[in-house]
């Protein structure tokens, strides 16, 4: 899924994406689609649990025509210590097939818990994961199950966390390396999440990326964030900051299997960012992938 030898340039699809897509035109080559935005889940106790949002699906199909699509889920909560929600997985599989996803990504965070769910996964508050052997074993089994059910590769995305779990047996990049080794899954490397962890938790981004096996990276996300009471958040309410571009410029040439670079913005932030500003970041991604592809080829 590349154009020539370079990765595709994409956008996280939301209700605000069409105005950007119309302005950017062919600059937007792929769409990351959140399946959970395309149906309502009324819960397992409901007579009819899932209700498709036909209007949203219709509009999405119009904009996805002629573009590559990938799934970017937030509902399966793979690191949670509970069985996979198979009815939900079935709905995701149906959408994956009908929208022709090339791969499916989920987050390395837990949203669901045994007595319920951490609500509003849409906004990205996932719980940090203990990077231990027992969690790795459990997660690997689920990743294999999802890959088998969807018939495609699953990617796991590195999270932004305010409170890392202390004393883990693995560091995060090593955990992702091992998960990829055991399951064949890939990595969705969110450079803004990494930058957020640099800002809040003194993570060294370059050291992190040097530890990660970058040949597992299939997709990269860039985005911007905002301050909240002394913390930097992955709010997607700003354009991509300079340090994220710096990480991308340095490390993308080391990712031989990278297939797409996606800009994420929150739908409530279009006015703040401006359509021209968002298109500007998309243009910068094009420059980035062109340079990186040349470097990889050299």
């Amino acid at each position: 899924m590349t154009i020539g030898n370079r990765p595709l340039v994409g956008l996280l699809y939301s209700s605000a994406a069409p105005v950007v897509i119309e302005a950017a035109g062919s600059l937007v080559e792929s769409l990351d689609i959140i399946p959970e935005r395309l149906f309502y889940d009324l819960g397992a106790t409901s007579e009819q649990r899932f209700h498709r949002v036909d209007g949203a699906l219709h509009e999405l199909r119009r904009h996805a025509a002629g573009r590559h699509t990938t799934g970017h889920g937030i509902g399966l909560s793979l690191p949670s210590d509970m069985p996979i929600d198979e009815p939900l997985l079935d709905v995701v599989a149906d959408l994956s097939e009908s929208l022709e996803f090339s791969w499916y990504s989920e987050h390395l965070s837990s949203f669901a818990t045994m007595r319920g769910a951490v609500p509003n996964a849409q906004a990205g508050l996932g719980l940090p994961v203990p990077y231990d052997e027992d969690v790795l074993t459990m997660l690997a089994g689920k990743v294999e199950m999802v890959q088998q059910r969807l018939g495609m590769r699953v990617l796991l995305e590195n999270p932004a966390v305010f409170t890392p779990v202390p004393g883990c047996e693995y560091r995060e990049p090593a955990f992702l390396n091992e998960l990829a080794s055991r399951t064949g899954c890939g990595v969705l490397l969110d450079l803004h999440n990494l930058y957020t962890n640099e800002r809040n938790n003194d993570v060294d981004g370059a050291e992190y990326l040097n530890e990660m096996e970058l040949e597992n990276v299939v997709e990269v996300h860039v985005a911007g964030g905002t301050e909240l009471f002394g913390f930097y958040t992955d709010s997607h309410a700003a354009l991509t900051p300079r340090p994220v571009w710096d990480l991308a410029n340095e490390f993308l040439p080391q990712m031989p299997h990278l297939q797409s670079v996606v800009f994420e913005f929150h739908e409530s932030s279009v006015e703040r960012l401006g359509v021209a500003g968002i298109v500007g970041d998309i243009e910068r991604i094009h420059e980035l992938v062109d340079r990186s592809a040349s470097a990889v080829a050299a």
Binding site: E36, L42, A44, R115, G116, A117, P119
Partner: peptide
């Protein structure tokens, strides 16, 4: 308390 992924309209 919520049970599953909760869409804005459902909540």
């Amino acid at each position: 308390p919520t049970e599953h992924f909760v869409h804005f309209l459902v909540e």
